[in-house]
């Protein structure tokens, strides 16, 4: 029995990826950072096609009425916190102005940073403040709460603990009790049924603590935003969030990239 297991283990060899030193081998169909190059702001086809209302057009004719001020910047905005990376907008755009790149670094510290503006550069997440970083930089224990999630984000989070990603080599670990944790990693749109449990878990984490929201649901409610039984805008509504990791679900590399940025082990686009 145990000999068989050891043999299997030897056969498997070394599986852990070299990330972050070596760029990850991403799948062909991977969808990363959206890129917009829109010129016709009156078209709105993409906005209508978006199932989560992630796309908005500032200064559009209908929004501002007939009186367009000269100073108004007309631009297309895409909220990654809402985006489910479904490519409906890509298909809807007659000018092929929207595309998804293979850039996996999507995490941000600020909710507003997630709103991509036409032609502007994305501001990726920074490390924690000096004092907090001193405490969590080398050892960060997280309690994961699935607040009504569909298990996609959860699976992509859980997979980080496997040999392939080996999260623990960075000092990050998922723990069973919030009493042992330094922060929460929340997935799911925060349904009414899970709201109290989530709040109690947050209370149970000792100070100082951080909150990480993973996936469109936890950040904004995602597909479920506006439903009676979920929080208005995911976990963002309830707690101050320190790290947003968008995606539906985010790729494990995206999550890992966000976590590493948070603890100061990665600071620029690779």
């Amino acid at each position: 029995m145990i000999l068989g297991e050891i043999k299997a283990r030897i056969n498997q060899g070394y599986r852990t990826i070299k990330f972050p030193d070596v760029e990850p081998d991403l799948p062909e169909r991977f969808r990363g950072m959206p890129k917009m190059n829109c010129k016709n702001f009156d078209c709105k086809k993409c906005k209508e096609a978006c199932p989560t209302g992630a796309i908005s057009i500032a200064g559009a004719a209908r929004d501002t009425g007939a009186t367009q001020g000269a100073g108004t910047i007309r631009q297309l905005k895409l909220d990654m916190g809402r985006c489910i990376f479904c490519t409906d907008c890509v298909l809807a755009c007659p000018e092929k102005a929207i595309s998804f790149t293979r850039d996996y670094g999507l995490s941000a510290n600020d909710r507003d940073d997630l709103i991509l503006k036409n032609g502007q550069v994305f501001e990726p997440a920074n490390a924690l403040k000096k004092e907090t970083l001193r405490i969590f930089g080398r050892s960060l224990k997280l309690r994961q709460v699935s607040a009504g999630g569909c298990n996609a984000c959860e699976m992509d989070t859980q997979v980080l603990s496997t040999v392939v990603f080996d999260l623990e080599r960075f000092g990050i670990q998922f723990v069973a009790s919030p009493r042992h944790a330094d922060g929460l990693l929340i997935t799911g749109p925060v349904t009414e049924s899970m709201r109290l449990a989530l709040e109690k878990t947050y209370e149970a984490v000792p100070n100082p603590k951080i909150v990480i929201a993973v996936g469109a649901c936890a950040i904004s409610g995602g597909l479920y935003a506006g439903h009676d039984e979920v929080a208005k805008s995911g976990a963002t509504e309830i707690f101050p969030v320190d790290l947003y990791i968008p995606g539906c679900p985010p790729h494990p590399i995206t999550i890992l990239d966000g976590l590493l940025r948070l603890i100061g082990k990665r600071w620029s686009h690779a």
């Binding site: 709460v145 009790s177 919030p178 009493r179 109290l196 449990a197 989530l198 109690k200 878990t201 209370e203 149970a204 000792p206 100070n207």
Partner: peptide
């Protein structure tokens, strides 16, 4: 601080 015993969010 004092808090209730961790009840798994029940």
């Amino acid at each position: 601080g004092t808090a209730v015993t961790w009840d798994c969010g029940y």
